[in-house]
Design a protein around this nucleic acid. Structure first.
Lengths: 211, 211
DNA sequence: CCAAAAGTGTTGGCTGTACACCCATGT
DNA sequence: ACATGGGTGTACAGCCAACACTTTTGG
């Protein structure tokens, strides 16, 4: 009943870029932690609920709205000022993301392995999000969110490899993916700079916002 | 930046009683939802962080402090008054729990299958907690929290059966539990009203508060 | 002596993993 | 011609599910 602490929403936004898992960070141009990087976040707008705030934040940063978004965890005291932060994580296809060209904040993608100095305890938040993402790959088809609608199995494999940060066996990977029955094979093939025409696949179902 | 909503902590407290999975509920003696039952919860005390509030709440209701407790999910608008509620779930051994004998609130155990009319959307919260608990049984040893230190494999099996709400095969269950290597067999046996002396086991590691 | 609960093995199917070569294309 | 990446099959091991009877004790 006493001392309602302030609270914020954070959104850890992942993408795959250059066969690497990357996160969207913004630059802090004022104290505290001036010059460090941070996960995008903010406070609730009037009348908004948590999920709406996360959706809005994601849209502010990337212009995207129909992508995978899920609540992650609620952290306390990240900023050491007794605030509460409800963290979400999102998966986006970076081609579609239009980063807001705000001078002060300079949103930019950073590889998850090899982050700059982060503000608050944002490294822990990203670490937590990464573990969750890895767990989800095992039993869901969230990977579609990081790929265009049609993709080759090799592309899909590279997504898995960059999230798990290790090589996978090609034949076993293909067998497993196909046996899950979540993919439809198309008759289309590509040769976009590839050396051999590759068959395109799509996910049967694309579930988006998970709130 | 605007309209910081109020927010609360909820604690879904599970136990096994009479071979049934039960939840601790308190009775609402005033509107809204007068006469309905609700998950124990409350607001943060001064200077307290989220986890501390959950620990305190659990202790208020049961007198217990060194038990399994984990953050579950942060709900919004459960009460339809724009509040935010950070839900936790706890696993307790009901023999040890001393329910506060408060006249107004009348804390009591209720079987998870067969709940009374609940206030707010507390049924959804319990449903969510139950799914999480089931998932955790598959890859952790949280079950120890619902049992005394020493227990028989049959007791352990009954815990699993009441959480999953279905019968399990005795031989397969024993094989699986033993092969996980999380149990130590003792030389002690019991015949506490049983019909044949049963060997007692204990979990090798007991991790408690998970925050 | 009957009811109740503890304890105990084997088999078959499925799943996951390890492992190596050929082919089509672009340069 | 060669470098690059797509595509393919088999064999073994471990895991899970199905399945029934014997033993001990309390009443």
């Amino acid at each position: 009943m006493v001392s309602t602490p302030s609270f914020a929403v954070l959104v850890v936004i992942f993408t795959i870029k250059g066969d690497e898992l990357q996160v969207l960070l913004i630059h802090r141009s004022a104290p505290p932690f001036e010059g460090h990087w941070a996960i995008p976040g903010g406070f609730l707008a009037n009348g908004e609920n948590l999920d709406e705030a996360a959706v809005r934040k994601l849209s502010d940063e990337t212009g995207l709205s129909d992508v995978y978004l899920e609540q992650l965890y609620t952290f306390h005291d990240l900023d050491e000022r007794n605030g509460v932060a409800v963290a979400y994580f999102a998966l986006v296809h970076h081609q579609n993301a239009k980063l807001a060209p705000r001078e002060a904040w300079r949103p930019a993608w950073y590889p998850v392995r090899g982050l700059p100095q982060l503000a608050f305890h944002n490294d822990q938040v990203i670490e937590y999000a990464l573990r969750r993402l890895q767990a989800k790959l095992d039993y869901t088809n969230v990977a579609y969110s990081l790929l265009p609608e049609y993709f080759t199995l090799s592309q899909l494999q590279r997504v898995y490899e960059s999230i798990f940060n290790r090589k996978l066996d090609k034949r076993n990977f293909r067998k497993r993916m196909l046996s899950l029955g979540l993919l439809t094979a198309t008759e289309r093939h590509v040769t976009d700079g590839a050396h051999r025409p590759a068959r395109l696949y799509a996910f049967k179902e694309r579930q988006h916002i998970i709130l």
